[in-house]
């Protein structure tokens, strides 16, 4: 319980850091701290496998890509000042976000009730229980999420390649993103 509160506070503090940090890279690092704290929260809730996968996928792989993109952006346009104009629609966004948050909290509280009322089943949070739930009961949501992500990836590729770039830097589609990114950095630094 004490660990839960401490890590929860750390997660909240890191989340505040994400939005208040002036430097984009700091913001991403706060986000990693936040995701890692969430992983520890999963561990305190006995969801061992989920916690470790959270670290592996979010704090590890996804965040690396994130840092990559940011690093590339900032080597190109470091001098760019943040926009001074007041963006619109903040209130509407804040209200929507708060409502989604409240809904999630209610769902979470209801789900937490079920856990608190009974003893956890044997093997709860382990890899096999997790796999059975994911590929059994939750197969449809799982696969549709995968499809949605695939669509997003295809969309990103289509958008990124719609603008013709200078012919020397790009080798076409067959190279990996990582390599393309690296040669872009080299090109940017060389001049």
């Amino acid at each position: 319980m004490i660990a839960f509160v401490i890590v929860g506070l750390a997660a909240i503090a890191a989340a505040i850091g994400v939005v208040t940090a002036r430097n984009v890279v700091h913001s991403v690092l706060w986000l990693i701290t936040h995701l890692a704290s969430l992983a520890v929260l999963y561990l305190t809730l006995q969801a061992t496998f989920l916690g470790l996968v959270q670290v592996l996928l979010y704090a590890g792989a996804v965040m690396v890509l994130f840092l990559f993109v940011l690093g590339l952006l900032s080597t190109r346009g470091e001098r760019e000042e943040p926009g001074t104009g007041q963006p619109k629609g903040q209130t509407a966004l804040a209200v929507t976000g708060a409502m989604i948050m409240a809904a999630l909290l209610m769902v979470g509280a209801a789900a937490g009730e079920a856990v608190r009322s009974g003893v956890l089943p044997a093997g709860f949070g382990g890899a096999s229980a997790f796999g059975v739930a994911l590929f059994g009961r939750y197969l449809l949501p799982f696969e549709s999420t995968a499809l949605a992500l695939l669509i997003a990836v295809v969309g990103v590729v289509a958008l990124a390649h719609s603008v013709p770039e200078e012919p020397s830097a790009s080798d076409g589609f067959d190279v990996s993103h990582a390599r393309g990114a690296d040669s872009a950095v080299l090109g940017g630094e060389a001049k």
Binding site: L29, F49, L52, V53, V55, G60
Partner: peptide, 17 residues
């Protein structure tokens, strides 16, 4: 740990950070 291998790979992915 009953997910020792996952622990190993997830923790070592922090090296890159």
């Amino acid at each position: 740990l009953n997910v020792g291998l996952v622990f190993f790979s997830s923790v070592s992915s922090f090296t890159l950070l």
